[in-house]
Design a protein around this nucleic acid. Structure first.
Lengths: 346, 346
DNA sequence: TTGAAAGCGCTAACAA
DNA sequence: TTGTTAGCGCTTTCAA
């Protein structure tokens, strides 16, 4: 490895001089043009690369942000990560992904520990385990650690949420305009989105059912729960009295549900209308293109990073209870069509 | 931040003693049980975390592996990354993703530079720009840097490839069994997979066409080229003399193609059969579930990491020209069905 | 305009 | 069993 001392020796100057030249801190680097040129040339020749560890040690920063999610194969998280990566890179940072895999609820926190050990300067956290009482929670508070929770609210931890209601209302309006009056909601676990769904259903006069089949824990493994969702669709397909529309809790699971319907010869939206939550770009390439309630993914990430970098820079513009709630809206694509009510033979 | 010196002071011992206790290097750490206990207790109380930068500086390693790909939203890369993440974590490493975004061909190399600046200990490289003559290429050779190229062969750089032929043959056999005799192949750019396709087509007596519509460069932006693919399907849909089967160069683009067919009311596999290359798990949740030629993603990653860690450990079991070629096989799902030949009215 | 010295947190070699 | 010393590569005083 080429170090500044190597360059210094070759140039016949002291090592700090090399540092000053190569970092060129404006007016501070009052080094004679001749030496500057010489040093820069040698550095280029030797292909000098500043040692990351050296810089990190002295600066106390690793210039990296952690991104903790449960499953990178879900396009929702992939798209979030992609957006986050681009955003942090603009500030010269890297994104370090932690995939909790959500087998047990603690995986989130193990991920957090592991990223902290790696010295990330801040964390975007999509987990649900950072509750008061846990050491990691206390640590975040005590150290005023730059962490933002997304999609989940913890006391005294800045968080970014989406308000499902507006998108949900739009969806029900569209459903109604298409003659639907009965709808099934499918969740993985008890979720916040439940309430906006119920509220919209009531408001638009729908007859709403819901299932929350899957428990957290080991049944949470992505492949397995996608299969479960597919089977859920099989059951649904065979019901004589099934509703004409289905809401699925996320785009990825909607794909599995639609796949399950397809297995049984049920076409969307010809036979059943389906809509989902998330509004990922990936939904555009499902068959049919998925109508979905869109969270403002870029804005969510940008706000989260704004808070994180604000803390990193010691500005403290945002207090710990900062909660930013962003509206959702319906992305109308092709998966909602005219109601086919089996009870009335329509 | 809590340092070993802090602990040392509190425990009334020297700082290296703390290091010895906390790293517990087996027989080397011959420290009295009493001191050990005391130190460990204080460490726990103070929530000591070893400084990543400190360790990195002295060990010369960051315990991280770079992963360079063009677009993380493509499930092929997502799944690869997921596998790689899990594998490196088992060795106590982290995966640092570099997303080149492939706007211009150099993006690959910029990514590599950026990861090197972070001090990654090795790199899994999915790019195509690391050619002889480029400074990065020369550097890898000169420093014997632990880099493995996947899906692309560069002289004197270890690489992992897939042999498309066996899977392609299986696909054509299945096509033939379903009465197909005409097939279209759709590529993004000139690719290696072209030859196995042509070869299999000839061997099975197919009438094969191919299009390679998109150029590399700015048209390479993922969203744009997916749209292009969709439009390609629109054109295809309107042809009176279209072949009964289509091969698309990757699962993700197959989704776009199938979406384009859907736009025109053409159903897969009812009206047209489609198969693709990659064999991602994501294909299972497309509608219809995608029949695809599967690369052995886990094995590719595991082999790549084997070579990388081998170099990191200084073992040099593999020479620079190591090329591991893994076979492919056909994952039969639902997107290939009986031929519908429009010329014969079948 | 430059150099000398100190120190970031850690590990490792050598003493004691 | 433990302490002392040195040094990883860098930045940042403080002097000159």
């Amino acid at each position: 490895m080429v170090t500044m001392s190597d360059i210094a020796k070759m140039a016949g100057v002291s090592q700090p001089t090399v540092s000053r030249v190569l970092n060129g801190k404006g007016a501070k680097a009052r080094i004679s043009p001749a030496t500057q040129k010489r040093i820069k040339e040698i550095a280029r020749e030797l292909q000098f690369r500043p040692s990351f560890a050296g810089q990190a040690l002295v600066s106390g920063r690793t210039k990296s942000i952690g991104f903790i999610c449960g499953n990178i194969r879900n396009p929702y998280y992939t798209e979030m990560a992609d957006i986050a990566m681009q955003a942090v890179e603009e500030r010269g940072y890297h994104l370090l992904m932690g995939v909790a895999r959500w087998v047990t609820w603690q995986n989130d926190l193990e991920c957090f520990d592991s990223l902290l050990a790696r010295g990330v300067d801040g964390v975007i956290y999509f987990g649900s385990a950072l509750a008061p009482g846990r050491t990691q929670y206390e640590q975040v508070l005590r150290e005023h650690y730059p962490l933002v929770s997304v999609n989940y609210r913890f006391p005294r931890i800045p968080s970014i949420l989406s308000d499902a209601q507006p998108g949900m209302n739009e969806a029900f309006a569209l459903l109604k305009a298409n003659g639907h009056s009965r709808v099934l909601g499918v969740w993985l676990v008890q979720e916040e989105k439940h309430h906006p769904f119920v509220k919209a259903a009531k408001e638009f006069g729908f007859d709403a059912e819901f299932t929350t089949k899957f428990k957290s824990g080991s049944a949470n493994r992505p492949d397995q729960s996608l299969q479960n969702m597919r089977r859920e669709a099989h059951c649904f397909a065979e019901r004589m009295d099934r509703p004409s529309a289905v809401f699925v809790t996320s785009d990825q699971y909607a794909a599995a549900f639609i796949g399950g319907l397809w297995d049984k010869g049920i076409l969307v939206p010809r036979d059943v209308s389906v809509f989902a939550y998330d509004g990922t770009r990936a939904g555009e390439y499902m068959t049919p293109p998925l109508t979905s309630i869109r969270q403002d993914l870029p804005e969510m990430i940008h706000k989260a990073l704004e808070i994180i970098f604000d803390r990193i820079d010691g500005k403290n513009t945002f207090d710990s209870d900062t909660t930013i709630t962003l509206p959702t809206r319906l992305i109308v694509r092709e998966s909602i069509g005219p109601a086919v009510d089996r009870r009335t033979g329509g």
